[in-house]
Write a protein that binds this DNA or RNA. Structure first.
Lengths: 207, 207
DNA sequence: TAGATTGTTAATCGATTAACAATC
DNA sequence: TAGATTGTTAATCGATTAACAATC
């Protein structure tokens, strides 16, 4: 398929997982792989992997498979992961701080460059190389720096209000750790990181 | 549709989100809602909500809508969220500790009743009402208590080895915060909570 | 060359959307 | 009753799976 047609979102959701596993292969010193091998590790099918990749072009060689370093480069390009993305964090409690100090997020191309909280005892303190700012400065700071991604790590009730502020600031994607459903305009993306919801998805299958 | 046929997993994934929003309605004092109203808040369609619910039976009244307290009760029953699930946590670093102290997880029916780490400075300390145990006791403790769910919050390289231990202990579902792809047997479920992967899913759509 | 594996086309399967009769 | 909304059936749409020619 040609690279120009619209790629289903479900496919977009799988590309980061392919990239993640390919990077693990790379770290293990593996240089070449096949859709079959990748599928075995990921628990999907080789057919699906080849079909997914074909939305963007041909990256392999018949009879051989894929050069991992090349494919990793291409997938990064596709996901726009070939540059560093600035991210704002709202909520510098224990969860927010853990994310601030998470090296893995950084290694994968994201830099948390601004952090906010409304608790005066936290404002002004340092964590993960940034200074926690007063939540009142969210709109100024995000607007000024033109930040497009935010991590929402405030607990419960305040989440919607903060989300509104983030949207007003120009944020286009929210990683939502609040455990609440957020109402946002259609053009703003939300990825829910809700432990209870994900656990419930599994308890359905357990007696 | 009759309650007995196989329900698609994509539907199961949405039920916790319906439940979550209905609970929010409840907290706001709203007692009755409709598929239309719910869809507006969730950003989906009324058709889809009704179709999803119909897999399990009929919970509403024509012309009226749904009694929220009744529907909440039914969805909890369907997800087996009408009882408390014991959860094991492996990795009591900053992220693991944040989860241990997360009240929201508890309110939604999950109790982290055992926590493990391999760092001697953490072993024996208290957090969120449990004592951090030596990781060597994972298999004994989980087997003994018959725990079926685990949260994996160890960083990078150790994750696969811990996952193997969890599987051997009888764990059936893993909430995976490690940021690595896990290889598990088919009968074990994994939910990936990988911030970088979820952010990349959004950066695809941003220039 | 022979074997392996890709990228793509065709066939199947499944999910979403639309429509509507039933009924509160 | 009239208006509203459900649960379900039918129609459409889209994704997955299967198959295979191309070719390394």
């Amino acid at each position: 398929m040609s690279p120009a047609d619209r790629v289903p979102d479900v496919v977009i959701g799988r590309i980061p997982l392919y990239l993640r596993t390919l990077s693990q292969f790379q770290a293990q010193g593996i240089r070449i792989t096949s859709s079959k091998e990748l599928a075995a590790v990921l628990g999907t099918s080789a057919d699906q992997i080849r079909k997914d990749l074909s939305h963007f072009g041909g990256f392999g060689k018949q009879g051989t498979g894929y050069h991992i370093s090349y494919l990793v480069g291409q997938l990064k390009r596709i996901l726009h992961a070939d540059r560093e993305w600035e991210v704002a964090l709202v909520g510098a409690g224990s969860l927010g701080s853990a994310l601030l100090n998470c090296k893995e997020i950084n290694r994968r191309g994201f830099a948390i460059v601004a952090a906010f909280d409304r608790d005066p005892t936290r404002i002004g303190s340092q964590a993960g190389g940034v200074t926690i700012q007063d939540g009142r400065h969210i709109e100024d700071e995000i607007g000024l720096r033109n930040i497009k991604l935010a991590i929402l790590a405030v607990p419960g009730p305040a989440a919607q209000q903060v989300a509104d502020t983030l949207v007003a600031s120009g944020i286009r994607g929210i990683l939502n750790y609040s455990g609440l459903a957020l109402r946002v305009p259609e053009e703003v993306m939300v990825q829910d990181m809700d432990p209870a919801a994900h656990l419930q998805r599994m308890t359905y299958y357990l007696g």
